[in-house]
């Protein structure tokens, strides 16, 4: 079970999971290469968290093949767990302990931990190292969660909606942290419903809707591939704004030029953003 034997850090084929009558995951395939940042993007209830929990070894699946770092997470050994870091969505840490005590203690669980003080610095909690956890803000707690996720120096880090509830500045700092960890060679899988987050961080991403992967690829490539056409917008002489979706924007503009006999009032020509592509792929176009 070395890197050479299995080039993919995560290999998922035909993953299925039902909760009673509800199908949460309906045949997902994923291949995450070693060293990349992979984004799992989708609306709430698309099956992202269920998928990640199955990869963590924390939830049983109903069907499909799953290999994480060469092992089936459902039969994860202690040695396997020491190679996978998990950042939870909503877990609490022992409130009465300090940040430093907690990070130091968790380091003891691992065969080759990182230096606790270095990790506290990495997540930017130096100033709070000796504060009790109950005194931390929400954002600081999430950073502690990340510290506990990386203290074992994992090969693979699984983050489930790590920035939900962050203010914009905290989110930027968090992105820098993810880039730093990725730069150190950690393979990272993160779920998010923030599009700009996936675009900013992920080398590749998969868009999930209703338990299936509806698109997969590099963020720019996705836009290219699924975002054909353009939207031409203008203002009519009576002041109403109009827009038209077209595969031939130049011809549309030429026709408008002819109609207005020169300058077109309020002219815009927009290429679809990744957000447009995402909303279309996840069937939420009406939200626009």
């Amino acid at each position: 079970m070395t890197a050479h034997a299995n080039e993919l850090a995560v290999d998922v084929r035909g993953l299925r999971k039902r909760y009673g009558d509800v199908t949460a995951v309906d045949g997902i395939d994923l291949g995450i290469r070693r060293g990349e940042v992979f984004g799992l993007l989708g609306p709430n209830g698309a099956g992202k968290s269920t998928t990640v929990e199955i990869l963590q070894g924390n939830r049983a699946r109903d069907g499909g093949e799953v290999s994480v770092l060469g092992s089936d997470p459902a039969r994860g050994t202690r040695a396997w767990r020491s190679r996978v870091g998990i950042v939870w969505q909503d877990d609490s840490a022992p409130a009465e302990l300090t940040v430093r005590e907690t990070v130091r203690h968790f380091a003891r669980y691992y065969p080759r931990p990182r230096d606790p003080d270095e990790v506290i610095g990495l997540v930017g909690l130096d100033a709070k190292a000796d504060a009790r956890i109950k005194a931390l803000s929400g954002g600081q707690r999430r950073r502690l969660d990340v510290a506990l996720g990386v203290i074992g120096d994992p090969e693979l880090l699984l983050l489930d909606e790590p920035t939900t509830g962050f203010d914009p500045a905290a989110r930027r700092r968090f992105w820098d942290l993810i880039r730093k960890l990725s730069g150190e060679g950690t393979t990272i899988l993160l779920t998010t419903h923030y599009l700009e987050e996936a675009e900013a961080l992920a080398d590749r991403l998969a868009v999930v809707a209703e338990g299936r992967v509806v698109a997969e690829g590099e963020p720019a490539g996705l836009r290219e591939h699924y975002g054909t056409g353009a939207t031409v917008g203008w203002t009519e002489p009576d002041g109403t704004a109009r827009s038209e979706r077209t595969d031939t924007p130049t011809r549309t503009v030429a026709a408008l030029m002819h109609r207005f006999d020169g300058e077109i009032p309020g002219l815009t020509v927009g290429r679809p953003t990744l957000e447009d592509v995402y909303l279309r792929l996840t069937g939420q176009e009406d939200a626009r």
Binding site: A3, R33, E36, R78, R108, P111, D153, E155, T187
Partner: peptide
């Protein structure tokens, strides 16, 4: 691919579990 330039963590020998 973007990953080739990056050192990936995999070759380090497994330490002993506490």
């Amino acid at each position: 691919m973007t990953t080739t330039a990056v050192r990936t963590k995999a070759e380090a020998p497994a330490g002993r579990l506490p």
